[in-house]
Every structure is written in structure tokens, then in C-alpha cells.
């Protein structure tokens, strides 16, 4: 393979095109995945905000039944895996799964540890820090947002409430959304990119092979045949029509051969009567 021009020329082209395409494909897919997941987190954050705004009035009134109804209705929405509200001690107060109510959550659990890692818990988080991804007990991929419920003057001053004004966070909302649609979109993008990359690779290689064959390999083969036929002896053959510089080489070879034809009979088969000193 490496003893021929085709092999020597095509191997580096194949390595370069394939390698660079793979690098670009992986980097582009990683960038797209990052954008899609960030959008997904933003969407989940917005939804958490909507839930907090929806339940705000019921919380001010300390109406658990209304809160429960709102959470239940939201959790019936397609793609919502769970909605929970925790109090400051980490006990589930309201949940879309009634069996979870009054269950205590460890502060070191995933989603809690982000804020409760140190003795003094963090009270503000960026939108990406609020998010976590995991597989739930049904095996579904879930992206969950843990949003703090902040103390407002309305809460601290409400007649029915007892939150002191200096308590910054009253509890947290935990909402989990299915990532099925996001992952399906990513899989679709990945498939399309793979197909596109393979097509680009095949077309590039086919183009290079076709051009190489048309411009170099076939004319080289003709030149080789022409040279070999002339080498065998007999009268000098006219060179075939060849492209570019190869035509010039063939013409030069033909001229040399013609001159040799003129010289050879006198040199190889000198006349017996010829004067050697002439």
C-alpha cells in the first residue's frame, strides 16, 4: 500500500480529515450539550419561580390544603417528576407524593449539601448551582432545582406567622423535571451530526481519490505503459496525450528515444566495412 503513490498520498489525507472532523464533532457536540442543558436548567428555574409565586399566597395564609392542591396540580403536568417544600429543619411539609410528607431529609443529602456543606449555610446560589441531575428510583433521568424560600417583610409581619425578621431562609422548594425530552433532543442532534460528519468524510475522501486518480494516477499509469513499451525496443512510439507536466515528460522521453534510435544502429551494429578511425 505504501509502495504506491496512491497509498502515500491518501493516508495523510485520511488521517487529517478524519481526525480533525472527530475533534470538531466532539467539541461542537459538547458545546451544544452545554447550551441545551443550561437552557433546561433555566427552564426549571423559571418553573420553580412560578411555583413559589403560586404558593406564596397560600403560605402567607398558612393554608396547607391549598398549598397541597397547588403542588398536586403542578405535579400532574407532563414532565414534572416531583415537587416538595421543605421547612428550615429539612422536613417535607408539602409534596406531590403524599407519603413523603413529614419525612426528614439529611443535610448531607445530594441537593442539600451544596448550601449545608459548612456550619453557616449559604443563602444565595447561582442558577446552575441550584441544579442537580440524577436518576430517580424509576430509572428516569431527572434535573432538580432546589430554590430557597426567602423571608419577606410580609412573612415576618404576618399575624399568623412566627418567623423572626432576621431569619433569611424559611425553607426550600425542590422541583424535579424529567430530562427525557432534553436527552431525546440531544440524541437526535448527535445522530444528525454523526451522519453529517460521515457524509462529509466520505465526500471529502471520494473527492480527493477522484481528483488524484483523474489528475495523477491514470496519467501516471499511461506514462508508465508508454515508457515500458518504448523500453521493449522497436520503433519509438508516439506518446499519448497526457495532462500538465506529464505531457512534457512524455515528449522529452520520446525525443530521447528518437535520438537513441538514430545513434544505436551505428553504435551497436557498426558496418563491417566502416573505418574505425573515421
Amino acid at each position: 500500500m505504501f509502495e504506491r503513490i496512491a497509498g502515500r498520498a491518501l493516508v495523510p489525507v485520511g488521517i487529517v480529515v478524519t481526525g480533525f472532523l472527530v475533534v470538531c464533532f466532539v467539541l461542537l457536540y459538547a458545546a451544544i450539550k452545554n447550551v441545551v442543558l443550561r437552557d433546561s436548567v433555566e427552564h426549571a428555574n423559571n418553573l420553580a419561580g412560578i411555583v413559589l409565586k403560586s404558593t406564596r399566597h397560600a403560605m402567607l395564609k398558612s393554608d396547607r390544603e391549598l398549598n397541597q392542591a397547588i403542588i398536586r396540580n403542578i405535579s400532574e403536568q407532563k414532565g414534572v417528576q416531583h415537587v416538595r417544600i421543605f421547612n428550615k429543619k429539612g422536613t417535607v411539609v408539602v409534596s406531590s407524593h403524599p407519603e413523603e410528607v413529614n419525612r426528614q431529609l439529611d443535610k448531607k443529602a445530594e441537593g442539600c449539601v451544596v448550601c449545608h456543606e459548612k456550619a453557616q449555610p449559604i443563602t444565595t446560589l447561582g442558577s446552575m448551582q441550584k441544579a442537580r441531575s440524577f436518576k430517580n428510583n424509576l430509572g428516569a433521568d431527572v434535573i432538580a432545582i432546589t430554590a430557597p424560600i426567602y423571608n419577606d417583610p410580609e412573612c415576618a409581619n404576618a399575624a399568623c406567622h412566627f418567623h423572626p425578621a432576621d431569619q433569611k431562609v424559611l425553607g426550600t422548594l425542590d422541583i424535579g423535571l424529567s430530562q427525557e425530552a432534553t436527552l431525546a433532543s440531544l440524541a437526535s442532534i448527535r445522530l444528525q451530526m454523526i451522519i453529517f460528519s460521515i457524509l462529509t468524510l466520505v465526500l471529502t475522501m471520494a473527492g480527493v481519490i477522484a481528483l488524484l486518480k483523474m489528475i495523477v494516477l491514470v496519467p501516471m499509469r499511461k506514462l508508465q505503459d508508454f515508457a515500458e513499451k518504448n523500453e521493449e525496443g522497436g520503433t519509438a512510439l508516439h506518446p499519448p496525450k497526457l495532462p500538465y507536466e506529464l505531457d512534457r515528460i512524455a515528449q522529452s522521453f520520446y525525443c530521447i528515444r528518437k535520438r537513441l534510435d538514430n545513434v544505436e544502429p551505428n553504435r551497436v551494429n557498426p558496418s563491417p566495412n566502416a573505418d574505425p578511425n573515421r
Partner: peptide, 14 residues
């Protein structure tokens, strides 16, 4: 994790 194969592809190609 996301970019491992990109570096591998780049290094392997070069």
C-alpha cells in the same frame, strides 16, 4: 468527561 474524546482525537491525529 464531555471533552475527553476531543483531546484524544486531536492527540491521536497529530
Amino acid at each position: 468527561a464531555d471533552n475527553y474524546w476531543a483531546v484524544f482525537g486531536a492527540g491521536f491525529t497529530v
